[in-house]
Design a protein around this nucleic acid. Sequence first.
DNA 1: GTTCCGATGTACT
DNA 2: GTACATCGGAACG
Length: 197
Amino acid sequence: MDAAHLFDHPADVVARRLIGATLLFHDVGGRVVETEAYDATDPASHSFRGPTKRNAPMFGPPGRAYVYRIYGLHWCFNVVCDASSAGSAVLIRALEPSHGVEGMRQRRGAAPFPALCAGPGRLCQALGIGEAVNGARIGPFPLEIKSADAPVDVVQGVRVGVRHAADVRRRFGLAGSPFLSRPFPPVPGSQVAVICA
DNA sequence: GTTCCGATGTACT
DNA sequence: GTACATCGGAACG
């Protein structure tokens, strides 16, 4: 799949479309079940205050990886998108493991199967993603994302762990998936929307 | 089941 | 010094 076709769109659009896609790094990975959208107009985004040495990939071309360290020890993996709006990216928060599960287990220790990739730090540990992946092109091997081949039900909610723009619903998930980093709120009216990808 | 804590890179006040 | 797009384990009920 052509990277621009997949990624050169607003972060919200890419975040929604990536649900159900398959992410692989060195043939290890699985189906994307949870994402979050960030862009330069968003106070919760690393790009909000303009380019820095750390966030430089966010201001580069779409279809590249932005990998950063959080809280001094975990890695988080983002996909840069939207060439017309510099500083846009999608955080991949959780996968449904399907490829190279034994390697994941070795890197993740005694984590139970549903938690192998349930969280941005966890999935980076499971796939062996670290600083070396920062700025890497997505597709071809070793870093690949293949869009979903069938429509999926997508739920939407507020992002995890952000204090700025806490009411903005830019978190997307695969409806009913047991591989989410945490559940989406159980239908308090307008809190959850179902979208067909 | 929940809450609290420690690990400690990077950007900002 | 403080906040942060986090996780795993200990301590608790």
